[in-house]
Design a protein around this nucleic acid. Structure first.
Lengths: 337, 337
DNA sequence: GCCCTTTATGTAACCGGTTTCAGCACGCTA
DNA sequence: TAGCGTGCTGAAACCGGTTACATAAAGGGC
């Protein structure tokens, strides 16, 4: 592996000059520059990033904190992949690498410290945190890292932190208003876990839309799920058991909505005739499952891109956006309403 | 940021001793060790990974080569997310980080060199390559990197390289045999891009199963798709236009199968009564779309895990598995057959 | 009491870059 | 001709670790 000194020796120049050829080419004479570049190509010299990072304290790496080590083996973020693709593309375009950090393995370590330590050891220039929906507070400690930090779907505080999320309140309002416009006035909801930020916001949006329309909400019509299909199935069964049963349901996630749809079918009922149904997320299946799930769509790619932009803006010295950045959500009307 | 020298000074020991406390604790006396650890905790010392990498030439990072910069904006690997989760989990468990590399930005660079250079600059301990289905040969150059290297769904050669893939031949045979057992003897196929390795293998498996059953294949019953939904739709229309039309179709990917299903419906036909249909991949939708797509399921998590294991085994000095490692595929019978 | 291990530690070179500072050569001005 | 800015380059310190080698003290066998 050829080093900068080796290259300098072969060119008969100092290492400083070689370094300048690659970092501030304009200060070195045309002649030497060409000579150095030619020789570099010949011997296959490439600067060593670890050494650069050590010297400059800039790594061109953005850390990704994303805890896959989860009790649910099949745990899936509904559209992590879209976010990741967008995030990586945007970062790559600026020459930034994305380092998916393994939590620090040291024994006897407070779990909330594991990621923080990994972040600090690697001199990453910034951090993106993707929430699991996990209640593990590990990631929250990252607000303490003195590094630009953007969290997705997770509220986080700290002087160098900001958050990005879809407009969950607005989306839930859209969904609820849509049901109201369809003439429903007995609307139930299946929620996500109470401690999950998007879940809480969606519930809030639901409530506010009902309020605004002067529709009273029976608290027994609010039933908790966990964003997974089975919980939607169970929740819908609970709702169907009520007498009279609600005529419309807002499920705070599409997977739960699909579970609810199944419960409906199992009970010999149909959407939208017997019960109208709106979901949230617009996962791929929503469009494909009959009769087509009416839902709220999020700008999946936009979230990843916004995360990259937030990081890069902080990298260039800007202060973090104080509040959470919210991306617009829109209603997609399909067959269930 | 506290350095090792700072910590050594405060403890009244040499930097070598501090280093040993963290790397070979057994050689340093109980007393000093505790003292150093206590002081480290007090001043928040964490070893700098760049410096370690520089000195040891081991980074504990595995590079991920995955080109998101694609002409198809909505390009999706059918189950990249599952692979990624499994891969990252397995690597994380061993304290290995996953570096998603940005291609080298240098101007005037041969595109196939961009990733190779990124790999080399970062002293990653190994590389995982995820194929895009892209025909861009950029990634193939990675066989040249003198680094353990495992490619997913991509044939790659080199002294430190190995590949992992599902048993595409076997899966295609299963699918085809299943159709034959159902009594079909006029079976068509919708293939993936010819230059795509899994696509080629699936076609080979299809042919071999027909051969074995003594069923002749009309080459006009082999129609090419590109793994995307629209191509499946178009291909099925072509097949339906034939007279007599085939009674069964093996689509080499589920998305194409779903496109084919749509074409059937559009023509007023139904699966399996008019045309039986088998897909490949078992993407999430396959189970949910009515009447349920019969398909070949891949061990998505297994692929990620196997990739991690292959890398780690090479890291511990083992030679790479010479041929591709194939993971078993199985038939899932649903409504379309 | 001497020699030989063993154990614990320190010294200093090294990994491969960047960057400050100084110096040289050149051309220009006064 | 002295003085000065400008363009280019080099020497050396520095970033924060690891590790080969040397050394000193303690323990054991004779």
């Amino acid at each position: 592996m050829s080093s900068i000194r080796e290259l300098a020796r072969r060119c008969g120049v100092s290492v400083a000059t070689v370094s300048r050829v690659f970092n501030t080419p304009e200060v070195v004479s045309q002649l030497t520059r060409q000579h150095v570049l030619a020789m570099a190509a010949e011997i296959g010299y490439l600067p060593n990033e670890s050494a650069r990072t050590l010297a400059t304290k800039k790594s061109n790496m953005v850390g990704l904190v994303w805890d896959t080590d989860h009790r649910r083996p099949g745990w899936r973020h509904p559209f992590l992949q879209d976010i990741l693709v967008a995030l990586k593309s945007a970062l790559s375009a600026q020459g930034l690498h994305l380092l998916m950090l393994a939590p620090d393995q040291s024994a006897g370590l407070d779990s909330r410290q594991r990621f923080l330590r990994a972040v600090q050891r690697h001199s990453v220039d910034g951090v993106v945190i993707i929430d699991n929906g996990s209640r593990d507070p590990a990631v929250l400690a990252l607000g303490d890292a003195a590094v630009p930090c953007v969290a997705l779907d997770l509220r986080i505080t700290g002087p160098t932190c900001t958050s990005i999320t879809s407009d969950n309140v607005g989306g839930a309002r859209l969904a609820t208003q849509h049901l109201i416009e369809r003439g429903h006035h007995r609307i139930a909801t299946i929620t996500g876990p109470a401690r999950n930020w998007p879940a809480a916001e969606r519930l809030a949006g639901f409530r506010s839309a009902l309020d605004e329309a002067g529709i009273a909400l029976d608290e027994a019509d609010v039933v908790a799920g966990d964003f997974y299909l089975d919980s939607g199935f169970a929740a819908m069964n609970r709702l169907l058991a009520r007498d009279p049963r609600p005529t419309a349901v807002f499920a705070a996630g599409d997977e739960m909505a699909i579970g609810a749809l199944r419960a409906l079918h199992a009970a010999g009922l149909r959407a939208p005739d017997d019960v109208a149904l709106v979901g949230f997320d617009d996962i791929e299946i929503a469009a494909l499952i009959p009769p087509g799930l009416t839902t709220i769509t999020q700008d999946k790619t936009g979230i990843g891109t916004a995360a990259a932009e937030a990081i890069m803006s902080m990298l260039s010295g800007d202060a973090p956006t104080p509040g959470p950045t919210t991306l617009p959500t829109t209603l997609v009307v399909r067959g269930t309403t």
